[in-house]
Design a binder for these strands. Structure first.
Lengths: 226, 226
DNA sequence: CCTCTTAGTTGCATTACACAACTAACTATA
DNA sequence: TATAGTTAGTTGTGTAATGCAACTAAGAGG
């Protein structure tokens, strides 16, 4: 048998694609689901808005999730604790910087108030854009509009089945606050009684006895994750 | 600005991971969902059973799907028309052939009778293994048991919501045949009346008027995809 | 005291589905 | 010819999940 790609001594002979990590960071901004976009400082697509991303560094990243974390630090100066793999895309022509480019896309849902991303290396500016606008914006760099569409769909599907992003919420919250947040994520209104019944059946929450949120109107029971 | 990974002239300076395609080819064999495994001819894991796969060849593959097709031809000598991206895994230590290895996993559901895979390059033999056995088999190479678990789960979820693999079925079939196939995929029995009602509501099928499957017992109406 | 607003509950209709029992059509065999 | 056996196909009933609407409760503020 001659040496082949299966042979450790020669497998590196095949050129490998430029492998990048792209981040779809979602949050609620002004009551709507929004995605964090960066304005590109460099070619290609200089001046266009795109998902923050960076090249996979096999010398520094232990695995794909590590790489996504590092990119979050470098580009946004934040940690993203709750990353989920979204998809992988790769082809000859998707990125002019390389003859063949592969992108591994992660998505994260982060509390808007809790993170304060700053434009890091190679980004001129950062901006939150409502996902519905971003998906429809043909001016986004690369195929990022389509990547955002996928990340939005997956995130909304999670909310729909009450797979809630507790890391997104404060420790204690009222059911009204939770419902309002879910409505913002889904982009539609929910029925109060159904919402509460579903939460009840799934035993996701625990009332914090004696603790209420007071304000202008009737006080509301506080809950925390069970 | 100094040259960086974002600069086309120097981006290739970063070493890239060994990028492979792995195939989770599923079918119904002896009434159960099964996955096609190959016996490895070479190190590492020589003699162990693993998903068929191969190295991404950016000089030959236009995109990831092309690569999966090529791998199917080389290893199995078949075409897999209905591939779906399953997941991506990558880390420093997952494959001893390279310091950093990335795998893009595709899944396919193929009609057992219609394809006749032959052990191609670098495979000693091929074998259909019931997915439940494969997932529980700690002797499989690499992390393939876990990859099979994911592909099985995703495939069964599709069947559960009647996202049927029509390419898997003959052009015309009876509802009984369809139900038996779904039961084999899911590994559990289904209720006849529910199954038919759900198909009816979704308007997935069309009866072929006047055409019946005759046999040992009462003739059955033939249907085709609507 | 009355109104406004949000919190929280209750009752009812609808839907989707599982479960079970039924009828129908054909073959095989006594 | 009669009947048993098997698959095809339908029907009825109960239940769980949910949407919709209306209701009561509790505070603030005039």
């Amino acid at each position: 048998m001659t040496s082949t790609a299966e042979d450790p001594s020669t497998s590196r002979a095949y050129p490998m694609p430029l492998t990048r990590i792209e981040l779809a960071v979602l949050s609620i901004v002004d009551g709507s689901l929004a995605v964090l976009l960066g304005k590109r400082e460099q070619l290609p697509h200089r001046g266009k808005w795109a998902l923050p991303g960076g090249v996979l560094r096999i010398d520094r990243d232990g695995d794909l999730k590590d790489a996504a974390q590092r990119v979050a630090h470098e580009r946004l100066e934040v940690a993203l604790p709750f990353l989920r793999l979204q998809t992988a895309v790769g082809s000859k022509s998707r990125d002019p910087r390389a003859p063949w480019a592969l992108a591994i896309v992660y998505r994260a849902l982060v509390p808007f108030a809790a993170i304060d991303p700053k434009a890091g290396k190679r980004l001129e500016a950062l901006r939150w854009v409502a996902v519905d606008d971003a998906v429809a914006d043909a001016r986004l760099a690369f195929d990022h509009a389509e990547l955002i569409r996928g990340a939005t769909e997956a995130t909304r599907a999670e909310i729909d089945r009450l797979d809630l992003p507790f890391d997104f919420l404060p420790q204690k919250f009222t059911l009204g606050e939770l419902q309002t947040m879910c409505e913002a994520m889904l982009g539609r209104r929910l029925d109060k009684s159904s919402f509460r019944r579903r939460l009840e059946e799934r035993e996701l929450l625990q009332p914090v006895r004696g603790e209420m949120r007071t304000g202008a109107f009737r006080p509301a029971q506080l809950y925390r994750r069970r």
